[in-house]
């Protein structure tokens, strides 16, 4: 399966788990999206531990809008993270899954303890199913230690009367921004 079909499949499967998938053309659009959503939710900070490329622009943007930008030692800010902005290594269309290399502790905290997780997914890294990533995953596992996360939606539970409820421990929302590879 090729692009754009995989993207279509991913979008379709994402809607089933209330993941918002959007296509963006540039890093600038990513930043606007993050700013927009953080403001809308009355958030106060953006945690972006692995955003080297966009960091200057992001820092400027945050500063201009009165948002705290957190990039390291996130453990010290655990209860203050509004939006977590991270990269996703791959996307798996069949299950609308993001594959995020979460080996760095800061990255884990940014994705687990934010209110809203925004992940940037390079367009060319969407595969139809997990089997397609087998080799790559093994290679990553072999370069241990490694903490690899499959994320498919926002944190959910159905433990009270089987009523689906979002945001029990982790993020309440998951947004995926599909970006042209050469914009990275």
């Amino acid at each position: 399966m090729e692009y754009p079909k995989v993207l279509e499949l991913m979008k379709q499967r994402a809607s089933a788990v209330r993941t918002v998938v959007s296509e963006v053309r540039s890093m600038r659009e990513v930043l606007d999206y993050v700013l927009d959503i953080t403001r809308k939710q009355e958030g106060s900070s953006v945690a972006a531990p692995d955003f080297c490329r966009g960091s200057a622009a992001l820092a400027a943007l945050c500063e201009k809008n009165g948002l705290a930008l957190l990039t390291e030692n996130l453990r010290d800010h655990i209860s203050k993270i509004s939006t977590g902005l991270t990269m996703a290594r791959w996307g798996i269309a069949e299950t609308a899954t993001l594959v995020v290399d979460s080996t760095s502790e800061d990255l884990r905290i940014a994705t687990m303890l934010c209110e809203t997780h925004v992940a940037v997914l390079p367009k060319s890294n969407i595969v139809p199913d997990a089997t397609a990533l087998q080799e790559e995953m093994i290679r990553m596992f072999e370069a241990a230690p490694r903490y690899l996360a499959f994320i498919s939606g926002a944190s959910r539970t159905a433990d009270i009367e089987r009523v689906l409820t979002i945001g029990v421990h982790g993020p309440q929302e998951l947004h995926v921004l599909v970006l042209e590879a050469d914009e990275l």
Binding site: R13, A16, V17, N73, R75, E94, T95, A96, T97, T103, S104, E105, M137, F141, A144, P145, R146, Y147, L148, A149, F150, I151, S152, G153, A154, S155, R156, A158, G170
Partner: peptide, 26 residues
């Protein structure tokens, strides 16, 4: 189990990873 295509989080852990609250950092 629950009729989900996949559970929300599948976590693959290989080895002792970074942990800043540990003395060794690991």
């Amino acid at each position: 189990a629950t009729g989900q295509a996949i559970s929300t989080y599948v976590t693959w852990i290989t080895g002792a990873t970074e942990c800043k609250s540990a003395e060794s950092g690991r």
